[in-house]
Design a protein around this nucleic acid. Sequence first.
DNA 1: GCACTCTCGACCTGAAGAGTCGAGAAAGTC
DNA 2: GACTTTCTCGACTCTTCAGGTCGAGAGTGC
Lengths: 152, 152
Amino acid sequence: MRVSAKADYAVRAAVELAAAGEGEPVKGERLATSQDIPLQFLEHILLELKHQGLVRARRGAKGGYWLARPADEVTVADVVRAVEGPIANVQSMPPETIEYAGNAESLRDVWIAVRANIRSVLEEVTLADLVAKEMPSSVEALTAEPDSWAAR
Amino acid sequence: MRVSAKADYAVRAAVELAAAGEGEPVKGERLATSQDIPLQFLEHILLELKHQGLVRARRGAKGGYWLARPADEVTVADVVRAVEGPIANVQSMPPETIEYAGNAESLRDVWIAVRANIRSVLEEVTLADLVAKEMPSSVEALTAEPDSWAAR
DNA sequence: GCACTCTCGACCTGAAGAGTCGAGAAAGTC
DNA sequence: GACTTTCTCGACTCTTCAGGTCGAGAGTGC
């Protein structure tokens, strides 16, 4: 139930690329400094994003990275999945494949519901939303609840 | 974004205790075999649950474990928190304490929304619900969606 | 006293998370 | 064509943690 540094970095870098828009490619170093991410580590992450087809890159002078798709067609879920694989696992297995014995049978439904609820946020929010700082209304409704901000 | 073996085991053991009801204490070994959990590992988990006040225990013949509270007053969230600590962290920090720079500012709201949505499931379902195999309607609605079952 | 069962610290092993390093390959510039 | 810039990518480190095992001890009931 935790978001890794890698996933966090990946989304932040992707948002930065989204903000840069269509113009010139953005250099790795600029991404690293503007989001305060270790450069070498970030390069690995960007490479993964490239391999997953989310990002494109060019080397050399005038080189850099840019988004492969328009920012409003890339969701946070896409970015997280690109670097972390499936978004919600139990014991490294997708919840729908797990068989529980006897009394615990319904536990699977709980994990399924949790996963569905995580998806409903991450698959709704796009990089464009983040740049614009305007969340979809379903997400906005959640952050508007004061209770959501309480540590627990 | 993954549930550890420990958390999974803890919930399953707790459900088993809930199913056993008020009568005699349940032995560790019986919990281990009925839910197929390594006994020694399970004992550590039960100890943690005891330290968190969720479970009580007695040693010796006729010894065993039982729930400290009625099964309908213990939620899955309670059990998970007892063994894993806070339920949704980013880079090991609670999301509300994170400061993002510039373009990524709104990312915090996304993590907050995700956490709220996870809670809304785990804090609703009680051990009694699991034993009865009847989920609260809000959770039932989620598992009823075929899309929730799709691997992704 | 004895069998039973929880208590709990010590230990182990492998994998994963979070980086770092350094050589190389493509792209542009002069 | 040399040179610089910037991505590419495998190899390596270092620490932590997940997941589990062992064994001695301490409380309980008979």
